[in-house]
Simulated assay, not measured.
Amino acid sequence: MQGCITSAMFDWSDLRYFLAVARHGSTLAASRALGVNQSTVHRRIAELERRIGGPLMLRYPAGYRLTEFGEALLPAVEAIETSVMALERRIVAYRSDLAGTIRLAVPEPLVSRIVGSTLLDMFHARYPALRIEFVMSDRYLDLSKGEADIALRSGEPADETLIGRKIADSIWAVYGSRSYVQQHGAPQRIEDVGRHAIVGFDGMLINHRAAKWLAAIAPGANIAARNNSVLGVLHAVKSGIGIA
């Protein structure tokens, strides 16, 4: 007589918790990423390990690390996640019959990076009937008034009526052209910034956090130029007129 399995070896949804801990390195970070309690992550991981009959990760002072068994299973679990996400996209596309134009509000400097990447090709492969139209502006466009459909924004969200998620870190630093540095030197400390010519923000960017930071650390600095766009400030810095 041959035996048969009458119940699933494990709950498929528990794989999400395994992936989250593997990627974030702790159950606390995983719980935040998944939007659940930390105890839920512990419980689901323990149940998954019980079902499959082996430990998937071990706890260390610095966080969690996968066991050899967990490392061996990780690629297969990631493949399952990719397949499930593809299935979900197919279902959504089938139900909504997506077609038309999406107006994407994006700061000017990001457009060349997006166009130069594979993101648009990947998007159009999934949704061939959708077209992306860039609305280039450093201003926060009003989505509720239809100025755009989706927006890429830098900084903390301020509008509670919008739904968003973090997709990257936006790193700011003090920059100067090579010609400027050769002539005037480079600031070595924050206190040195005020002794240099500054390319400042103007117009709608006057309340930008970078503009506020410059005003706070160099209140009496010589403003050599102002511009109301990040791209304009970039071009001014490249010209060698000052730092920003």
Rank of each mutant, 00 (worst) to 15 (best):
A186E: 03
A186I: 04
A186F: 13
A186G: 01
A186W: 08
P187Q: 08
P187R: 09
P187I: 05
Q188I: 06
Q188R: 12
Q188N: 00
Q188P: 00
Q188H: 04
R189D: 06
R189S: 10
R189V: 04
I190F: 02
I190Q: 08
E191H: 03
D192C: 04
D192M: 02
D192V: 04
V193F: 02
V193Q: 07
G194M: 07
G194I: 08
G194Y: 01
R195E: 02
R195K: 12
H196W: 02
H196N: 08
H196L: 03
H196D: 02
H196T: 03
H196M: 09
A197R: 15
A197D: 02
A197K: 14
A197F: 02
A197W: 01
V199T: 08
V199S: 06
V199M: 09
V199Y: 10
V199E: 08
G200V: 04
G200K: 05
G200D: 08
G200L: 07
G200P: 00
G200A: 15
F201H: 14
F201M: 14
F201K: 12
F201A: 14
D202A: 15
D202I: 07
D202P: 05
G203S: 05
G203C: 03
G203R: 12
G203F: 01
M204H: 14
L205G: 08
L205H: 11
L205R: 13
I206F: 01
I206N: 01
N207G: 01
N207M: 03
N207E: 11
N207R: 15
H208L: 10
H208N: 15
H208V: 09
H208I: 11
H208A: 15
H208K: 14
R209D: 05
R209C: 00
R209M: 03
R209P: 03
A210C: 13
A210M: 15
A210H: 10
A210Y: 11
A210G: 10
A211S: 14
K212T: 09
K212A: 13
K212P: 03
K212M: 15
W213P: 01
W213G: 07
W213K: 12
L214D: 07
L214H: 11
L214Y: 14
A215H: 12
A215D: 10
A216L: 11
A216W: 01
I217Y: 07
I217R: 12
I217L: 14
I217V: 15
I217P: 05
